[in-house]
Design a protein around this nucleic acid. Structure first.
Length: 371
DNA sequence: AACGTTGACAACCGCTGTGAA
DNA sequence: CTTCACAGCGGTTGTCAACGT
């Protein structure tokens, strides 16, 4: 037994709003604020229930609402956030300025959902619908690759979701500076957080990096020096400099993770996926931070994520100097296949750029702070 | 022209969480 | 602790215009 509809009792109006009603509602709220929604309709002279007024204001009349067609960026964001958050429309809307949850939900249901389905991607799981890709004598390699892609993406999203949840908790619990007092310096704040939470502290580490700019990062494959600096993790202009290789990459060495705002500069840190870690130099007082960070990597990092893709030169062309051309081709084809399948309006110049972007996403996820 | 179908979006319903009494 | 009112949320339905037959 649910509550009776709000319009039952007094024959309140329902259905589409007229311009006159909109005008009344806007005028009242602009003058008095909405206050109690229940009492608003009577005060504003509207034959509507408070709930209806609230919905109309929030989803349509509010001045800070952007209406009209969604941009490609917005669409991309929605898809990514939906993969991460599911049908939590309000959470998704919070990442899209000026868009309402209702609008995003409608757009998802009427546009994106159908398009993904048409492309053979399950809108609920964001994974390829393998059965729909032609089994039997179809193209098993493609299916394998897409499955791999799905697993790969799933792991990433899972970690990302965990990060978001924990980050949100931390923000709620520990980022409430006393009124009138200056916010403590980041390091101090982090130590406080870490001391309260105990182990594991991996998320504290990421949180600690929120205000930190990762200045330069070089990934080295198993001791081989491919060089290259990454000025900004989000800048596509530098993607071509990511040194990656498809040879044995169980160990990644990070040189000169140089952070500012008084944070430690980590040098020569080694991370072995799922196993051990070591480091060449870092400040002793940041041991906990580094351990936490290392644990985080060990728990979440699959070597495939960083090493499966071919080298590139500064122009973004595939390299062939490491004897990995066979894998290069395979991976390039794999990405081309995925790219062709997942044509959701996000176009990159070629699969090389795309795979670099994928590498970048993982670097950002596992290395970069989430801010 | 009339009717049926489809798509897009606004609006509603009912459940849940939260805070005040 | 319980109750209640309210806001917020996600799923669903209603409405209307565009399109097809």
């Amino acid at each position: 037994m649910g509550r009776s509809p709000c319009y039952d009792a007094t024959g309140l109006k329902r259905g589409p709003w007229t311009p006159e009603e909109d005008q009344k509602l806007m005028a009242y709220i602009q003058k008095h604020g909405h206050g109690s929604w229940r009492s608003l309709p009577e005060k504003a002279g509207l034959q509507r229930c408070g709930k209806s007024c609230r919905l109309r204001w929030i989803n349509y009349l509010r001045p800070d609402i952007k209406r009209g067609k969604f941009s490609l960026d917005e669409e991309k964001t929605i898809i990514q956030l939906h993969a991460l958050l599911g049908n939590r429309w309000s959470a998704i809307a919070s990442h899209l300025p000026k868009r309402t949850d209702n609008e995003i939900k409608n757009y998802w249901n009427t546009h994106i959902k159908k398009r993904l389905a048409m492309m053979g991607i399950d809108p609920a799981t964001h994974k390829p619908v393998v059965a729909a890709l032609g089994s039997g004598n179809g193209e098993p390699k493609k299916v394998t690759n897409l499955t791999h892609m799905a697993q790969w993406e799933s792991a990433r999203l899972e970690a990302e979701a965990r990060l978001v949840r924990e980050s949100s908790k931390l923000r709620q619990n520990y980022q409430q500076p006393t009124a009138g007092l200056p916010c403590p310096p980041p390091t101090q704040r982090v130590n406080k957080i870490a001391s309260r939470l105990g182990s594991p502290r991996c998320l504290d580490i990421l949180k600690a990096w929120q205000r930190v700019q990762l200045k330069s990062l070089v990934i080295e494959n198993n001791g081989g020096d491919h060089g290259g600096n990454l000025q900004s993790p989000t800048s596509t202009s530098n993607l071509q400099n990511i040194p990656v290789s498809s040879t044995n990459c169980n160990i990644a060495t990070f040189h000169s993770i140089d952070v500012n705002e008084g944070f430690t500069t980590f040098q020569d840190m080694e991370f072995e996926a799922g196993q051990a870690w070591s480091m060449g130099a870092c400040d002793a007082e940041d041991d906990d931070m580094i351990k936490g960070f290392s644990n985080f990597l060990s728990n979440n990092w699959e070597t495939d994520h960083l090493v499966q893709y071919p080298n590139t030169d500064k122009d973004g062309n595939s390299g062939s100097s490491d004897g990995v051309s066979e894998n290069d081709d395979e991976n390039k084809n794999y990405l081309d296949d995925v790219f062709n399948l997942v044509d959701c309006g996000l176009r990159y110049s070629d699969s090389t750029l795309l795979h670099n972007n994928i590498c970048m996403e993982h670097l950002e996820l596992f290395i970069r702070p989430t801010c």
